[in-house]
Design a protein around this nucleic acid. Structure first.
Lengths: 197, 197
DNA sequence: ACCTGAACACCGTTCAAGT
DNA sequence: ACCTGAACACCGTTCAAGT
């Protein structure tokens, strides 16, 4: 539409930061460096992103949510492994990234780990877990019908995949998440390849 | 033997840093803070630990190698997959089960998720993560030398396995853990089989 | 509301100088 | 070899001041 310089300041900042990450994953996104790259003052940057953490989270989230379709298993044109990976990515996307991931984790922790015993929330959790397992099993059943699934019981495969998704979700909330976006994709693919044939 | 103050400077620094971590996992180990605590100048600290990274790594390594069962990877009589599974089980065992697992998760949560941003504990966490990745990579290097490892970079394999271990650790702290002991073993085996050939 | 740039209190690292 | 403390070039955050 128009020259990047004519975009609003917030966008200029995000574009500058994303560009810098693109130039090298090991880039230090300091306030001054990003502000200078965006042609904006540090104070202006802080106006839109009150803390450096918020800036980082917003950038990473933007890089990750570039594409999100609805049920990917239904698309018969894509190979099985690719479809399953997309499905798991849908699960993963529900925890979000950055501060969203952290907030979701705090909720889960407070409800099901810290409050264990003090309040009987176990049934709720187990119900949700069942739902998740069922959902993955339904995806895997489609693949089995196509003969694209390795031998083994459906529930075992489903629980394995959910464990990987849980691990990745957790790692999204831990420090250094931004630097691990690459290995997240690789791990997801490895998990899928352990299940499809 | 003698008063801590009479120890050599290097030890005083390590003890000061370890104490600070002990007082709260969410401690920022800055040069000046550690040096002051050890009763030593910053220049003196740098003489023994040329970079802050080296200091962190040394401290974390010291905390972690307090107890180390013998290495299952060293046993040549067992098949590769079985050895790797035993190694991962050692990692997993450090989180414990039941209320121990829950307590460990609360600590991790408080230090690195809930306190995120409020205090810069990321370097401490990242140092520990690095150590874990290195450890798994060393195990995998043994298997690669035996020709028992699938193609792919060592770090990618290591991070995948650690994600699975993280997922399983988490599930140990969540409700219904007792009912999942079977699927834990199965998931661990599936992860191993995705990596060994 | 948006934006500036100085100022504050930190940080890790370097280094001339001492013993 | 060990140790000091000042100095350098950063950092994230705050804030009075402008438009």
């Amino acid at each position: 539409m128009s020259d990047p310089d004519e975009r609003d300041t917030r966008s200029k900042i995000l574009i500058a930061a994303a560009t810098m990450i693109g130039e090298g994953p090991a880039t230090r996104l300091s306030v001054r460096a990003v502000a200078a790259r965006a042609g904006v003052s540090t104070g202006s940057l802080r106006h839109f992103f009150p803390t450096q953490q918020e800036l980082l989270d917003t950038v990473v989230e933007g890089l990750q949510t570039l594409d999100l379709p609805d049920d990917p298993m239904a698309d018969p044109t894509r190979p099985p492994a690719e479809r399953l990976e997309a499905c798991l990515r849908v699960l993963l996307s529900s925890v979000g990234t950055g501060s969203t991931a952290r907030r979701n984790w705090v909720s889960l922790h407070d409800a099901y780990i810290a409050a264990a015993g003090r309040d009987d929330t176990a049934p709720t959790f187990l119900a949700m877990e069942r739902l998740a397992v069922d959902r993955v099993e339904r995806w895997l059943a489609v693949l089995r019908e196509e003969g694209a699934l390795r031998p083994g019981d459906l529930e075992g495969h489903a629980r394995f995949l959910l464990t990987v998704v849980n691990g990745l979700s957790l790692e999204r909330a831990l420090p250094g998440a931004a630097a691990r976006i690459g290995s997240e994709a690789a791990s997801l693919r490895q998990a899928v390849s352990a299940v499809v044939s």
